[in-house]
Computed example of a mutant assay.
Amino acid sequence: MTYRMILNETSYFGAGSIKHLIDEVKKRHFKKALVVTDKDLIKFKVATKVTDLLDKAGFQYEIYDEVIPNPSIAVVKKGVEVFKKSGADYLIAIGGGSPQDTAKAIGIIINNPEHADVRSLEGAIQTKHPSVPIIAIPTTAGTAAEVTINYVITDEEKKRKFVCVDPHDIPIVAIIDSEMMASMPPKLKAATGVDALTHAIEGYITKGAWELSDMMHLKAIEVISRALRSSVKGEAKGAEDMALGQYIAGMGFSNVGLGLVHGMAHPLGAFYGTPHGVANAVLLPHIMAYNAEFTGDRFRDIAKAMGVKNTEKMSIEEARTAAVEAVKALNKDVGIPPTLREIGVVESDIPELAKAALADVCTGGNPRDTNLKEIEALYRSIY
């Protein structure tokens, strides 16, 4: 059996680490950046923390700020045209998963024009050429898009999200600065934080898991579980720990895959624009319970990593229950809604949601093989 790990060429961590951006631009002899972000990050002057550095250093850039949550094919296509006209030779992605994913799609298409049809990027593919160089600067602690080889685009016409998996899309530099995440409101911290926990838990139990990824995922579960509550409260140490924990989770799952939580979450984003972190957070404990008997003793490890005491004395059934209950308790403490009804899911849509979830590329990694009937029943049980 052969395993593969793909990570960023260079990453920086810690409060204030954004200062290293200028050194990276200089040593790579980049000439002009296209800054990919969204209007809120411009409005609230989060992106300004980056552009001020570029201005001070005298570096050229142009801004593309039309990224939306759950970025669409149209957003990507417009970004490609903006890049072509700008004369840029690299991308700076500032934001959560949406700007990061948009930048990846732009960078891949620019250097692989045969994929101008964005839908052609779906699935696990091997493009001919690496993306335009990307420097990724996350402003949320959750998606870990800055370290993954995955990105997700919404096909609004067909009301579906599709996952693209391509080793050529990974940013060459990631700067994980918790001060760039300081403006996140508590609800966003909670949702993105449980998204990161979902990455770690699904990555630990997915069919592709192995020893190196296990090490990353267990550490990520530990860090996120101890830090998320304090991060949501606005504590600086919690925020810095969350920035690290979500990145560690990304290091793992990017290389081994995910499971049914993501498979069922993606259609919610496509149908209703549900924030991805919220969708994952609502689904996670229920699908953990659905998967439990197909995970061996791994839920015992998850429960221990989440701080549950005396797990070694528990039966396997008790340990599995403890892991699920620990996630439910964390969700409750940070204000995650308990049902799909509360996040705007329409019950009559469930059959179509189930079809989309079954077809999602993430679903194949689930430890328990599933089918349309069971997925539909899961949606209804969480409704």
Rank of each mutant, 00 (worst) to 15 (best):
P367F: 06
M288G: 02
V346L: 11
K313C: 12
S315T: 15
A270T: 12
A329R: 13
Y290D: 10
I350A: 01
P267V: 01
V324H: 05
K328H: 12
V308I: 14
I336L: 08
V361M: 11
P351Y: 00
L330V: 03
P275M: 00
K304I: 02
L358K: 11
A322M: 06
A319D: 06
I316P: 02
I350G: 07
L353P: 06
V282N: 06
T363P: 03
D349N: 12
I316D: 14
H266E: 15
H286V: 02
R341E: 15
R298F: 01
A359C: 00
G344S: 09
A357M: 09
G365Q: 09
A305Q: 09
A319H: 06
R298T: 03
V334N: 14
V346P: 02
N331R: 08
D333E: 15
H276Q: 14
G307E: 02
E312S: 15
V308M: 12
V345H: 04
L268H: 08
G269A: 03
G273Y: 11
G277Y: 04
I336S: 01
E317N: 08
R341L: 02
P275G: 00
I336G: 10
R320T: 12
I302V: 12
N280W: 00
D360H: 10
H286G: 08
P285T: 09
T339Y: 05
A356V: 10
L284C: 02
L284N: 03
G296M: 07
L372P: 04
I287N: 07
A319Y: 02
M288E: 01
N310K: 14
G335V: 03
E352P: 03
R320Y: 04
Y272K: 13
T274I: 00
T339S: 14
E317S: 04
L330D: 03
G296A: 07
A279C: 00
V327I: 06
S315V: 06
D360Q: 11
Y290M: 01
N291D: 09
V361Y: 06
K355Q: 06
N371Y: 09
I302D: 10
C362S: 13
P285V: 11
N366K: 10
V361E: 09
E325R: 06
G273L: 10
E312M: 13
I336V: 08
G364R: 11
P275H: 00
P267H: 13
K373I: 07
G344A: 07
M288Y: 00
A292Y: 01
D360R: 14
K355G: 00
M306F: 10
N291R: 05
M288D: 00
N371R: 07
L284A: 01
K373D: 13
S315G: 09
A329E: 15
H286T: 03
F299M: 13
A356N: 14
D301Y: 10
A281R: 12
S315A: 09
G344C: 12
N280S: 00
A292G: 04
P351T: 02
F294G: 04
C362Q: 09
A281D: 08
K332P: 05
K328C: 05
K309G: 06
L284W: 04
I302H: 11
G296I: 05
G296F: 07
L353K: 08
M288T: 00
V361P: 03
E325T: 11
A303D: 04
V324E: 09
A329L: 10
I336D: 05
E347R: 15
A354G: 07
K304Y: 02
F299L: 14
N331L: 03
P267I: 08
A279V: 00
I302L: 10
